[in-house]
Design a protein around this nucleic acid. Structure first.
Length: 289
DNA sequence: TGATATGTTATCTT
DNA sequence: CAAGATAACATATC
């Protein structure tokens, strides 16, 4: 669900609508979601949005940041004058705020008059309440183990050379390895399955056993699949919606993920499902060696 | 009704 | 210590 392309999709949306606005007030409806003091962000201006793997960071002009992880079912949805007419996906769970809304950021900008009438808000929704929001000094982001321990990411510092080193030095099966956030940041179950299929590699292969050629192919497949998903707005398999409350389309294009028992798109064989590292793992045994 | 799904962390076992 | 399994978190959906 929310993996690198989904979180990047949210980031791009938030960048467009939040940067330059001030946080007027914060209402926390479910206290376990938020750590830190909201007083440290009220009145501050949003100056940028960053993504680290599947994590999001909203930077403010007072040396504080809002760090967040949406886990499986979190949603950051902006509602303002420009987006009032956009229809929310049913995955949002009705009009905002609703019973899944746990944090409400009331926003303000220069032309406050027009906006005050219609209201400008950032909502954090989370059906299963696994996500977290931490209010923290920007310089202390690395005190959070999630950020500190994050491995190199595709599109950032994960070069083929580094990828090669990670793969060839591990005893684990290749699929759990590329999903390990401490080894590589941002890849989850959907894209791990599909990238391995695209590369023609059996998810159960020991990472160490991959040839240099296979490692290169896998590297290229990961980038290709992530890029493609980002282009179509991510995967809305579970509850994912973008910053406007709209769904992505990748779930209609998945190569093997969630397709157990269906035909392989390449050879027509049947997609099988096993468990690897406790996660559903889909593959075509004819196409993946 | 009950099994299942996803991401992360913690804990236990090998 | 590495790596594997398993449970926990909360809830909708099949």
């Amino acid at each position: 669900m929310p993996e690198l392309p989904e979180v990047e999709t949210i980031k791009l949306g938030l960048q467009k609508y939040l940067v330059g606005r001030k946080i007027d007030k914060v209402e926390v409806r479910l206290s376990k979601i938020v750590q830190g003091d909201i007083k440290n962000i009220e009145g501050a201006k949003i100056i940028g949005i960053r993504r680290f793997g599947k994590g999001l960071v909203i930077d403010l002009d007072n040396k504080n940041s809002i760090a967040a992880h949406i886990k499986l079912t979190g949603q950051f949805i902006y509602r303002g004058p420009e987006t009032k007419k956009i229809k929310l996906s049913p995955k949002v769970g009705g009009g905002l705020p609703n019973s899944r809304t746990h944090v409400i950021f009331k926003l303000k900008s220069q032309n406050a008059k027009a906006e005050e009438e219609s209201g400008t808000y950032l909502y954090y929704n989370d059906l299963r309440q696994f996500g977290w929001i931490k209010i923290i000094e920007t310089s202390k982001l690395n005190d959070v183990s999630f950020f500190r321990d994050m491995g190199p990411e595709p599109f950032k510092d994960l070069t083929l050379e580094i990828f090669n080193k990670i793969i060839s030095s591990s005893n684990t099966s290749v699929k759990p390895l590329i999903m390990d956030q401490k080894k590589i940041g941002g890849i989850g179950n959907i894209y791990a399955n599909d990238a391995l299929y695209d590369a023609g590699i059996d998810p159960e292969r020991k990472a160490k056993s991959l040839s240099e050629r296979e490692i290169k192919k896998l590297y290229e497949s990961i980038l290709k699949i992530l890029k493609f998903s980002l282009k179509i707005g991510g995967a809305s398999e579970l509850n994912f919606v973008n910053a406007l409350g709209e769904e992505g389309k990748y779930q209609n294009h998945s190569l093997v993920y969630g397709r157990a028992g269906q035909k392989c798109k390449r050879c027509g064989g049947i997609i099988k499902k096993i468990f690897l590292g406790g996660r559903g793992t889909y593959s075509c045994s004819a196409c993946q060696k």
